[in-house]
Design a binder for these strands. Sequence first.
DNA 1: CGAGCGCTTGAGCTGATTCAACAGACGTGG
DNA 2: CCACGTCTGTTGAATCAGCTCAAGCGCTCG
Lengths: 259, 259
Amino acid sequence: LREEAVFMIGKALVSHLSAIGDLSREDADALRGISGEVRTLGKGREIFRKGDCPEVSVVVLEGLLARYETRADGGRQILSFYFPTDVPSLETLHIDYLDDDLGALVDSTVGLIRHKVLFGLMDEQPNLLHLIWRMTLVQGAICRQWMMRNSSLPAHARMAHLFCEIFNRAKAMGRSTGNSCLLPITQEILGNALGLSAVHVNRTLQVLRDSGLVEMKGSRLTIVDYDQLAEMAMFDPRYLHNRALAQEGPLVRPRRRGS
Amino acid sequence: LREEAVFMIGKALVSHLSAIGDLSREDADALRGISGEVRTLGKGREIFRKGDCPEVSVVVLEGLLARYETRADGGRQILSFYFPTDVPSLETLHIDYLDDDLGALVDSTVGLIRHKVLFGLMDEQPNLLHLIWRMTLVQGAICRQWMMRNSSLPAHARMAHLFCEIFNRAKAMGRSTGNSCLLPITQEILGNALGLSAVHVNRTLQVLRDSGLVEMKGSRLTIVDYDQLAEMAMFDPRYLHNRALAQEGPLVRPRRRGS
DNA sequence: CGAGCGCTTGAGCTGATTCAACAGACGTGG
DNA sequence: CCACGTCTGTTGAATCAGCTCAAGCGCTCG
């Protein structure tokens, strides 16, 4: 089982990188040859803390991680979500120390790859270096959208935008089922990401639900009316720089659900 | 004059990169050998637009650029400021197209370096590749702070935080004079960055001014009481990953982690 | 001199917050 | 198996931070 899990690290990287760029056969083989430690993380556990200087990078295999900053008053701001195949903490390859915490929002399993291994890989396959660099840049693009969203959209559009992003990311990684995907977070956590109070998240969510735009129950997010949701959020998936989403047209609207 | 200006491109890069990492003599010489086009940009002019796919990277030599997104309702969100020696649009090295606009907030002069030149440089000096990559990651760290700030700080702390960042960045690049630095922006632009209305920027600024924390007149920002300002903003300059600022703040030794 | 831009001020409004209470689901231990 | 605490979601009421609208002021520049 654990043996098998090790292969998951390479697989996750292959699937993530080929979604944002061209992966040659050799590149893919090299990635699949990666070995690393597989670790399970209990809900709420942190894997890196502000100030850490890790020698490994993390690949999410299952579950959900988040990067967040805890404020003095106890509140926290979530800076990004990491779903399976995402690679948080890539910046530790080139940066002296971490600015914020990285933790599991639910029970999760992650792969740890030593930087040494990654550097070796990138030395031999320059194309992989470009793709990994690109991955960090895509994360930057996502971060800018979060900032735009949290700074200048009203609550309902803010929430709609995040839902669109999450669903699109899930879909792009083959992790959506029809018009729904996993999203195992509480309303409070949603608030931490959106910069809203838990109470207001609750009320805003009700509006979206009652307008027939989304459902959110259990740990599953269901997009009932994507077009309207995307319009409300002014959502344009191109910032995700994901090939599976690239054709979604120059304006806000994707073709048809379930295409 | 223009001949001289060309050298500025290399100089700017040397000074910026050596502030965030170790630059060998050869690295520095290679950078100083860079040639590129120098261009002046009138206030309000854009150099890149959303959707562009430029073949050059920009180095700010003089003035102030910003990356911003214009919303449907006409409002805009500024996503980052670029002061002299900053390199916006680095992500175009590895990404298919730009997500937002890049424009000059005041009359500015920039250097344009062809990607080909940069790639050649990074091929020959791997250390430069690492440093340039790191530069993109530092920009990511700054972006996350902006998100934190705009999502979860009240107006006065938000403004204080931005002022601290701007002053620290200026100081780190040797562009501060005593406790002041250039900041040629209107209150409206400040609002575009902070996600606040111009009116509220005005009132908030008055509070900071009347409390004896900052002055802002002409195009100059003066930090009257840095300590109090930084405390109000919970500002910790380490996210700038700049060596000149490393010793500031309550020092926590970076821990080594991972195995 | 007038025009325009940026700053300032006031008044009223609204979106979001806080505080507080309660209901349902879940899991744990007795 | 039930009793209990905990965690999540829901609701109401009061409050407040920040917004909009609107007017006026003081530059600077043509």
